[in-house]
Structure formats: C-alpha cells, structure tokens
Design a protein around this nucleic acid. Structure first.
Lengths: 219, 219
DNA sequence: GTAATTAAAAGCAGTCCTGCTTGTTTTCAC
DNA sequence: GTGAAAACAAGCAGGACTGCTTTTAATTAC
C-alpha cells in the first residue's frame, strides 16, 4: 500500500536511479484526489452517510479505481485521518511561523483552524473512532502527536513558561478544551458570534494572567 | 403517535372516567423500552452502526413491534433525542435542587452529567443532526431550551449576578464550552484525569473571580 | 516491438438495512 | 361473549453498500 514512488532498478547503468515514474506520480495524485473527496463527503454527508460509491463519484473516479488504491473503505478512512492530521500540523506551522508570537495570535491561529472544513471532517472521524477499533488505533497516535506538537510549539513561543509547569499545563488544557468545545458546539448548535468573541477575549486575558512575568510581549 | 393514554368515555356511569387503559400503559412502556434500547445502541455502536434491527434486538422486541410504535427509524431517533433532553433537564434539577448553591457544586453537577452515557448518545445524535435536516429540526429547539434553562438556573442560584450581565454571560459560555469540550475530548481521545482536575479547578477559580461580590459563599 | 506491470473501469455475488404488508394474539367496549 | 382495535410477530420485496473478480487501457522495461 505505502509503495515507494521510485524505481530502484538498474544501478549499473546509473541513468535513472530514483525515478518518480510518471505512473507513480499519477497514482499519488489519484490517491490524493480520493482523500480530498472523502473529506468533502464527510463534511457534506457526515460519517454515517459517507459511502464508497459517493466518494468515488465525488472524486470523478470509478469504484474499481478506488479499490485499486484502497483495498477497502476502512483503509480509505484511515488514510484520510492521517492526511487530516498532517494538514492540521502544516497549517499550524504556517500560521504560527509567520506571525507575532503573542497569546492573542496563537489563540486566533488555533481558533481559525477549528473553523475550517477539515476540522469538521476530523471530528466526524474522531466520533466514529469511538466505536471503531480500527479507526481508534489510527486516531490514538495522531491525537498524541498533535498534543505533543501543540505543547512543543507553546514552549517554543513562550520559553519563560517552562518554569511554572502547572500554570502552563492549565493554560494549554483550558485553551484546547474550550476552543474545541466551542467549535463543536458551533457546528452542532447555534452559537452566536458575539458569544464566541466574548469567550475568546476572556480566554486571552486568562492566558496572560497565567503567564509568570509578561516581560516584553504582553498583548 | 402521541396518543393520549386515557379513556374519556362513559361519563354517565362515572366509574372509569380517566382510566389509563392497560393497553396504553403497556404501549408507553414498550415505547420507553425502545428508546432506552436506542440510547444503549448509540453508546455501544455509535450512530452510524445503530440500525433498526439492532435496536429491536436490544429491546427484546420484533422489528414489527418496533415499526408499530415508530413509523420509521427517523422518528425513533427524534423521539430518543427528545427523551435524552428531558432526562438531562430532570437530572439537572435533581442534582442542583438538593445541593449547596456554590460555584463548585454547580460546576460538578454539570460535569457529572457529561460523564453519563446519556451525554454520549446525545452527542452522537447532535453530530448526526449536522447533516440531517430532520434531526436538526428536532435538535434546534432542544438546544435552545436547554440553554435557556441553564441560564435560568444560574440566575436562580446567583441572583446578584444579574447586574453584571457581561461577566455573567462570559462565565456561562466559558463553563458550558469548556466542560462540553473536555467531555468530548475525553471520549474521543485520551485525556488524563489529572488534566481534567486541573481544568475544573481553574474554571471554578475563574467563576469566582467573575462574580461581582462574593459575599458569603466563596469556595 | 513485445512482454509485464500498473491504473482504471465495470460487472457480480453476498449481505444488510429499510419500509411495507400480512397474520396472530391480547385487550377493550358493548 | 362478540366484534373492533391495538400490540406484537414475521415474512417479503426493493435498494444500497461492500468487497471481489474480470477486462480494458496505459505505461514501463527489456
């Protein structure tokens, strides 16, 4: 399945040692198209109504082509989960790397990620994983890695916080749980933008208060 | 469907004016059994794997009996959603009515509700409602009413807060979003009990700080 | 150029779910 | 007690999804 997209033959002639092979490129592209189609289906129809024929149609491919790339629906979902995870990590790095390193910016960077369709798709899969051993086995390391990266990122941005470990952990946990809870509530019920703004504002204030000594970059 | 469980005949003899009719009682009992079975299925299998045959089996009834009480699977889910809502309201009243009226108690009362299986079932339905117009139409007034009751309850317990409307709204929104977010994270990923305790503790502190003048019952 | 490998399409069988319809038992009204 | 209605049981047809197998087309290697 995780086939290396390269041609490792003919090391004697040395002409095409690691050749991406037009076919391998095409294959990877089709794979990506299927995963993107799965994400769109998860957002549009929800997990329970996302079926392999729908995904194939959304991708503009035959069901046979799909089964060529993913042996079954489960593998497609697992690959989609991994891809969503990677997207999330990339988006984070991108958002944080190019901005001011204050609490407000980090908070808004996190929040803006939760407004994207990708988060909806991720949440659909996360909920499904609760009662699906296979999906759960894929989700678990993903969640763990994200938590670690999120932790590392915060340490990187606010190194002076490493001292007060307790306050640091509280700030991280509060932020993650509150923002994600609000994002989920927002997509399952009607939450006013006003209420969201109030919570974001208050959350920022709390983070600032939890910081040991805001020297220099207090929002 | 919502048949009145009473016999309003024979007002002359006056013997059985409002008789619950053994059949009506039996019917209501079977209905309740089906709804309870649905909740258990939602917890065990998740929404996408909860099917009408499974519910019927879980309830120990034939599929025909089930279709006699609920014309189709959708009606069963809608009725289950309403019932979960009522359970939640009842549990709240019960928990709050008999306890101390301080921030910690209210917080823990809310949190303990989120640990129950009923919340899992509710969340499964709420997620499904995102892409299901029918379920969404049922969920919307339910969410609205809960928000109102939760608001009223808080006003009742902390009347002095009615003055500082802004702080009040922030405290309510923070509490609801953080607790529910943590509950969902807890069921879809591995959240340590330690992290939960930290957040609960901090949340309580914040609520106390948001109160205008904590006269008497500061935790 | 030819054989082999891979991508993609399409058809097929099996399974399960849904909603309906028919049949049986119990309960209620007179 | 008798007829009507409700509760319950069970079978049936249609549809959809899943996974597999067979075919066709394209690409690569020799």
């Amino acid at each position: 399945m995780a086939r290396a997209a390269a041609n490792t033959n003919t090391d004697a002639s040395g002409r095409r040692l690691i050749e991406p092979t037009a076919q391998a490129l095409k294959s990877a592209k089709t794979r990506a198209r299927l995963i993107e189609a799965t994400i769109r289906c998860l957002v549009k129809f929800g997990y329970s109504n996302t079926t392999t024929p729908k995904v194939a149609e959304e991708a503009g491919l035959s069901r046979g082509a799909m089964l060529h790339h993913f042996e079954n629906g489960r593998q497609l979902m697992q690959a989609t989960l991994i891809e969503l995870h990677n997207k999330r990590l990339r988006a984070f790095r991108r958002a944080v790397g190019s901005l001011e390193h204050d609490a407000r910016t980090l908070l808004m960077a996190y929040w803006s990620q939760l407004l994207r369709p990708n988060f909806i798709a991720f949440q659909e899969l996360a909920m499904a994983a609760r009662t699906d051993t296979q999906l759960s086995a894929t989700l678990e390391p993903v969640q763990r890695e994200f938590r670690e990266r999120w932790h590392d990122l915060a340490v990187e941005l606010f190194p002076e916080w490493a001292d007060d470990r307790n306050a640091f952990e509280v700030a991280l946990a509060m932020t993650q749980n509150t923002l994600e809870g609000m994002a989920i509530n927002r997509m399952t019920s009607n939450v006013t933008e006003e209420a969201i703004a109030l919570v974001l504002e208050h959350l920022e204030k709390q983070i600032l208060e939890l910081r040991p000594s805001p020297r220099g970059q207090a929002g």
